[in-house]
Design a protein around this nucleic acid. Structure first.
Lengths: 170, 170
DNA sequence: TTGGAATGTCAACAACACTGACATAAAATG
DNA sequence: CATTTTATGTCAGTGTTGTTGACATTCCAA
C-alpha cells in the first residue's frame, strides 16, 4: 500500500477484496448490457433467452444432437425440450432423426431460423464491437484471458471444442 | 492503419464476426463459472441468485432504500419485494422505516445476513482471485475496461456510484 | 431374445421475472 | 385545512425457464 511504484502497487492492489468485489460487480452490470439487445429482439417474437442460446449453438454446430446441446447449455434435457419444441413448431429449427442412431435428433436452423439468428447476432456483435473499439486490442486480449480463467474446466473444454470446430470447418 | 506493428494487426483481426462471436461465447461460459460457487451455497439455504444480489448490494450500501436497490438490480419492486420478504422473515435483513420520509424502508444486513454475505463473497472472490492470478495485472486491467465499455450508460453510472461510495466512505 | 443403457418426450412443480391493483405517506394544490 | 397528485412499498396473479419424475423408443451386449 505504501509502495511508490505504481505497477507494483497495482500488482498487490488488484487482489484486495475491494478490487475483487469491483470485478464481481463489473461482471454483473456488464452481463446485463450483454443480454439487453438480444432480449429486446426476442421479446418481439415472444421468445426468451433460452431460445436465443439454443439458436446460437445450433447455428454454431449444425446437425448437433439434443444431448450434445444440453451439455453445452448446461440445462436439463427436459428444459431444453420445451424450447426446442416451440422453435420446431414455429419453423425455425428442423429436427432430423439420425441415420446411424435413430434415437438421436440432429438439429438444424431453417432459413427463418438463420434469419433470426442473424438479427440477434448482429445486435450482440455491435455492442461487443463497440466495446472492443473503445478499449483497444491489448485490453481485449486481457478480457478474453480472464474470462477463460473464470470458466469451470468442463466449460473451458466446451469453449475450446467450439473454437476448434469453426477453425477446422471453414 | 498501414503500420506493421502487432497491435494494429490485432486491431483488424479481433473485429471479425468470428472473433466477436468467440467473445460472446466466452462471456456466456464465464458467467456460468462466475455464478456457480454462490449458487451451490445458496442452494443449501433454499435461496437463489435473486437473494444473493439483494444481499450483495445491501451489504455494499447499508441503509439503502427498496427503491434505490431495485434501480441498481434492474428488476421491478414487486420482484424484489418477494425476495426481501423472505430475507426479513429469516432474519438476514432488517428493514427500518425512514425517519425523515416514513414511506421509505432502509435496509441493513443482520449479523446472520452478514455471515451469509461473507460466505458467498469469499467463494466468489476465490474464483476471481484465482483467475486474476493466472493472467496477471495487465490482463485484469483490460478485462475491467471491456466490461465497463459493455455496460449500458445507466448501469455504468450505477457502477461508478457504488465505487465512489466505497471510496469516500472508508 | 432379453436386460440394460442412452436418447428424447410428456407432466408437474419451483424460482423469479413481469403486470395490475392497492395501501400508505408525503407533497402539491385549491 | 381539505383534496388531489405523486412516491413508496405490498399483495395477487401470470409467464418463462429452470428442476425432478415417469415413460417410450432405440441401440447394444450378454
Amino acid at each position: 500500500m505504501a509502495t511508490s511504484n505504481r505497477s507494483t502497487g497495482e500488482a498487490l492492489l488488484f487482489l484486495t477484496d475491494e478490487q475483487l468485489r469491483q470485478g464481481i460487480e463489473a461482471m454483473f452490470f456488464a452481463y446485463r448490457g450483454f443480454t439487453a439487445d438480444p432480449d429486446r429482439i426476442l421479446d418481439k417474437y415472444g421468445y426468451g433467452r433460452a431460445h436465443h442460446r439454443a439458436i446460437h449453438f445450433i447455428n454454431c454446430v449444425p446437425g448437433t444432437t439434443v444431448n450434445n446441446l444440453l451439455h453445452i447449455l448446461g440445462v436439463t434435457k427436459q428444459s431444453l425440450n420445451r424450447v426446442l419444441r416451440s422453435l420446431i413448431e414455429d419453423g425455425l429449427v428442423e429436427a432430423q432423426v439420425g441415420q446411424k442412431d435413430r434415437r438421436e435428433r440432429h438439429l438444424y436452423l431453417t432459413e427463418t431460423g438463420q434469419s433470426l439468428e442473424q438479427e440477434l447476432s448482429n445486435a450482440q456483435r455491435a455492442r461487443m464491437r463497440s466495446a472492443y473499439r473503445d478499449v483497444g486490442a491489448d485490453a481485449v486480449s486481457g478480457f478474453r484471458q480472464v474470462l477463460e480463467a473464470m470458466m469451470d474446466p468442463e466449460m473451458k473444454r466446451a469453449y475450446w471444442k467450439l473454437r476448434d470446430n469453426e477453425g477446422t470447418d471453414k
